[in-house]
């Protein structure tokens, strides 16, 4: 069966996607508000092409429209111009075959860690036992086993973010959208989280669109890094990261890492992101 069709099916379909979904976006533009003065041209026109199972990072300065791109790709915001195809189907409404992680964990205070994750099952009406087993697996894999019964307030920032990642994956979506998921974490937790995410991704082969400020994170995780310009954002450079996986905690082990990082710095310098 054609993979594209199965992934485009609704998430409650028993036929689950084996590999991630694809995104093909062309000429997408986002303008918030109306009128010449009030309107905010946030993004584009921009093209984006993410292959099934690929790990792609969007990197760029604050306010360049990275988050907007994520909202457009998920169908949560509509494009002003252009079109987006999710697994070959034109996007018209929010896609549910997706998991989203924001910089803030956005867990519900009033639910325990496990119940936050199982919200996916409740809302989608999926099989409780099956999802529970997946939740257990994810808690284990993400190193948060034992905190199922705790409320978000009783967890550290890093643990909350892991619960939020588990919530985004428990229903086995074909795509993971992450908006600076490790941005608020300390350096050590961030490095560990990066590694755990990479291992999960290698295992599940989901498509990941990962938004970040961090060159280290982008190079450390991605198959491809897309560098965006300042507002209105556009992709100005595409860098293929050819490093073996899993990548180490200390990326400096690879001489290539320094070269990739240097290239991104150069682009930022050219764009005027840094003013020294």
């Amino acid at each position: 069966m054609d993979k594209g069709n199965s992934a485009a099916m609704s998430s409650s379909s028993p036929v689950r996607a084996m590999v991630g979904a694809s995104i093909v976006a062309s000429g997408i533009t986002k303008v918030y508000g109306h009128g010449t003065n009030a309107a905010l041209h946030a993004l584009g026109p921009m093209g984006l092409n993410v292959k099934p199972g690929e790990f792609v990072s969007l990197i760029g300065p604050s306010g360049c429209g990275k988050s907007t791109t994520l909202l457009l790709v998920s169908g949560l915001e509509s494009v002003t111009e252009g079109k987006i195809e999710f697994d070959g189907q034109i996007l018209r409404k929010p896609i549910s075959d997706v998991g989203i992680v924001f910089q803030d964990h956005l867990l519900l205070d009033f639910r325990t860690a496990l119940k936050n994750v199982m919200l996916q099952q409740e809302i989608r009406g999926l099989d409780a036992a099956e999802l529970r087993a997946r939740a257990d697996m994810l808690f284990d894999r993400l190193g948060i086993a034992g905190s199922e019964g705790r409320y978000p307030r009783q967890l550290s920032g890093g643990m909350r973010q892991r619960v939020s990642i588990a919530r985004a994956l428990v229903h086995d979506p074909s795509m993971l959208l992450m908006d600076e998921p490790f941005g608020a974490l300390d350096a050590i937790t961030r490095t560990q989280s990066r590694h755990d995410l990479e291992m999960l991704w290698m295992e599940t082969q989901k498509t990941v669109l990962f938004i970040t400020h961090s060159i280290e994170e982008a190079v450390g995780l991605s198959d491809r890094v897309l560098v965006m310009s300042k507002s209105p954002g556009m992709i100005v450079e595409e860098i293929k990261i050819d490093l073996p996986r899993p990548r180490p905690a200390h990326l400096g082990e690879y001489p290539e890492f320094a070269q990739y990082a240097e290239r991104i710095y150069q682009i930022f310098a050219k764009l005027g992101v840094y003013k020294f």
Partner: peptide, 26 residues
């Protein structure tokens, strides 16, 4: 937090579920 509605909508939550599971408890 409005981004909570992004999460609930990406789960395919109906308005009713959005109210009972997200908005009222929040």
């Amino acid at each position: 937090d409005p981004r909570l509605f992004y999460i609930s909508r990406s789960m395919g939550a109906t308005n009713w579920q959005g109210f009972w599971k997200f908005r009222l408890p929040a």
